[in-house]
């Protein structure tokens, strides 16, 4: 029995290894097939237009060069998008890294009736320098297309080489002017990064935070910038300022507004029959007791007297505005100016 089991295990292991080996082999074959040079695409299939950097000299380490390649590819050829160079890819020249790295790539595709237009944006960053001007090259990128099978390309895979771009990398210092080897003191601190952008961001954030706090204070302070601003009579005063003495409805609006201000101050509805309670709880208004009486008299005439319309004149609104100012003074604990009778 044991012998049979061992056989079974052994045979199953063999199957498993065979499967894994076949899988790895097939994958490596695919990779190998993709990297393998393909025949060039037939002439006339690809029409290229390029936008290269506007100059080809004066580049320093760290500079970014941008190229835009527009390809019009006749159908049925299609770009194999996985054949596009990937970010971080660094070309080698004679086994040496070139110091020019692809840092960004994007492309767009537009289908037409007989062709497909591809626009490829390439950004390369320079990571090399030299004591003298150095020739450099944005490499010729090889991209692949899937087309119909032919004698040269049985699998239909063909390639196209985007022409390279030649330029010059400038040195970062005058040759011989700086000899870094003479200035290699271990006490010298490392060169620091410039912190200006971070400082600007910090200042901007602090300003934003400050403005937010001010806004919050404004909201918490009943939407008033100063401690006395948001109080009922101050608000009523602002509302009354916009009212017109010629409009009869504005008189009612003004009276209503002042009633609300008095009620808000007292925290209950104040009428002429409980105005004495209001004065007891808000003694700062005691100095305008007579004016409060006149106010309620005017309110009675305007709102409740259906026959006497003598109160509906422009003087009433003028008086109300002054009365409101008096109340605002009382609200602020100030001594109000005397007010003439209506």
């Amino acid at each position: 029995m044991k012998c049979v089991m061992n056989k079974l295990i052994k045979s199953s292991n063999i199957y498993l290894f065979t499967f894994v080996f076949a899988f790895i082999l097939s994958k490596s074959f695919v990779v190998f097939a993709n990297d393998e040079p393909s025949p060039d695409i037939p002439e006339g299939i690809v029409k290229i237009s390029k936008i290269n950097p506007d100059r080809n000299v004066g580049y320093l380490m760290g500079d970014i060069l941008k190229r835009t390649i527009a390809l019009d590819v006749k159908k049925p050829y299609k770009l194999i998008e996985t054949s596009l160079p990937i970010v971080g890819y660094e070309h080698r020249y004679q086994g040496q890294v070139s110091g020019i790295e692809l840092c960004k790539i994007s492309h767009t595709k537009k289908e037409n009736d007989d062709k497909t237009s591809y626009v490829i944006h390439l950004s390369y960053q320079i990571f090399t320098t030299a004591p003298v001007v150095k020739p450099a090259i944005l490499p010729a990128e090889v991209i692949k297309f899937q087309g119909p099978a032919s004698a040269e390309a049985k699998d239909g895979l063909v390639q196209y080489k985007i022409p390279e771009f030649y330029f010059r990398i400038s040195p970062m210092a005058v040759f011989g002017a700086v000899k870094i080897e003479d200035d290699m003191s271990p006490l010298r601190q490392p060169i620091l990064l410039q912190a200006y952008p971070e400082k600007e961001k910090l200042v901007a954030s602090l300003i934003l935070l400050g403005l937010s706090l001010v806004g919050l204070l404004y909201i918490l302070g009943s939407r008033a910038w100063l401690p006395f601003m948001g109080r009922p009579f101050a608000q009523a005063g602002r509302h009354l300022r916009g009212l017109s003495a010629t409009n009869t409805d504005d008189l009612k609006t003004a009276l209503t507004c002042l009633h609300k201000a008095i009620n808000s101050t007292a925290k209950y509805s104040v009428f002429s029959d409980n105005v004495s309670d209001f004065l007891t709880h808000s003694p700062s208004f005691k100095v305008i007791e007579n004016e409060l009486g006149q106010f309620f008299e005017l309110s009675h005439k305007v709102f409740f007297d259906t026959q006497d319309t003598s109160a509906h004149d422009k003087n009433s609104l003028v008086w109300l505005k002054r009365f409101c100012k008096q109340c605002r003074d009382c609200e602020r604990g100030l001594k109000p100016a005397n007010l003439k009778k209506i």
Binding site: F271, S272, D273, F304, D305
Partner: peptide, 11 residues
């Protein structure tokens, strides 16, 4: 008075 006031109602 010729007209009713809120104070009349309160009374």
């Amino acid at each position: 008075r010729d007209s009713v006031l809120p104070e009349d109602i309160h009374a």
